[in-house]
């Protein structure tokens, strides 16, 4: 199976696949995760602070995003919205879809972390005269962020792989490029394994980053 021709194809295609990984997959992941995390913080705070009017809206948002497939969301935004007069390029469409997706899932992560801060410490904050925002900023959020680091990395690593779905809307990320090469060379097994390995490398780096982050936050001490 791995004759000289296949090895040549693998060597030639490695950088052809890796480069869109660096120019598309990584930026797409970073930008979408940053926007998604911002969304998640807002959504989680609206829910735990029970902000009137906004609370049912964000609950609806989380319900819809978590209850529908990501691929369908991507199609609605890229192929569907033009019918409603909203035409988006493929990359912005992908960023919107991924951000909305991360926002919904990560908001639940953050909400759980916020709720896990012991009530007694919150009351202790009030007992020394703090107001709600001081308790939130000084007592709740520092502890909640620390606790949400491992599950947020879960979402982050998941997103790296989910960006491959953008191939369906003409974003020339790693998977799209791999599909093209595979179609030309008729070596799907070797090439899809190759791209899988590149995803694995990206995610391994992220796992290491997570490990370092946990260490510097002294998470293992609880």
């Amino acid at each position: 199976m791995f004759n000289e021709r296949v090895i040549n194809i693998l060597q030639e295609s490695f950088f052809k696949i890796l480069i869109p990984g660096i120019t598309h997959t990584i930026p797409l992941t970073l930008v979408s995760f940053a926007i998604g995390l911002f969304l998640a913080i807002v959504v989680a705070l609206v829910q735990v602070s029970n902000v009137r009017i906004l609370n049912p809206i964000v609950k609806f948002y989380v319900w819809v995003i978590r209850g529908t497939p990501l691929l369908v969301q991507i199609f609605i935004i890229f192929f569907g919205l033009p019918s409603a007069g909203i035409v988006l390029d493929s990359v912005p469409a992908a960023i919107i879809a991924f951000s909305l997706n991360v926002g919904a899932y990560a908001s639940e992560t953050l909400r759980a972390a916020i709720l896990s801060v012991p009530l007694g410490q919150i009351e202790a904050g009030y007992s020394i005269g703090m107001n709600y925002f001081q308790v939130l900023r000084r007592i709740i959020l520092p502890q909640a962020f620390k606790m949400s680091v491992p599950p947020l990395f879960n979402s982050f690593i998941g997103l790296v792989k989910d960006t491959s779905l953008a191939a369906n809307i003409t974003v020339t990320e790693m998977f799209m490029v791999t599909q093209r090469i595979a179609a030309k060379t008729f070596e799907p097994l070797a090439l899809y394994c190759e791209v899988a390995v590149i995803y694995l490398i990206f995610c391994t780096v992220l796992s290491k980053v997570q490990h370092m982050a946990e260490k510097s936050l002294k998470l293992e001490q609880g």
Binding site: P118, G120, E123, A124, G125, S127, I128, G129, K146
Partner: peptide, 20 residues
């Protein structure tokens, strides 16, 4: 409420120190 709380100190049964 906040002004009043500043003038009272509370010590709880289970301490409730800020663990971070």
């Amino acid at each position: 409420i906040l002004d009043y709380r500043k003038k009272t100190g509370m010590v709880f049964q289970s301490f409730h120190l800020f663990s971070h």
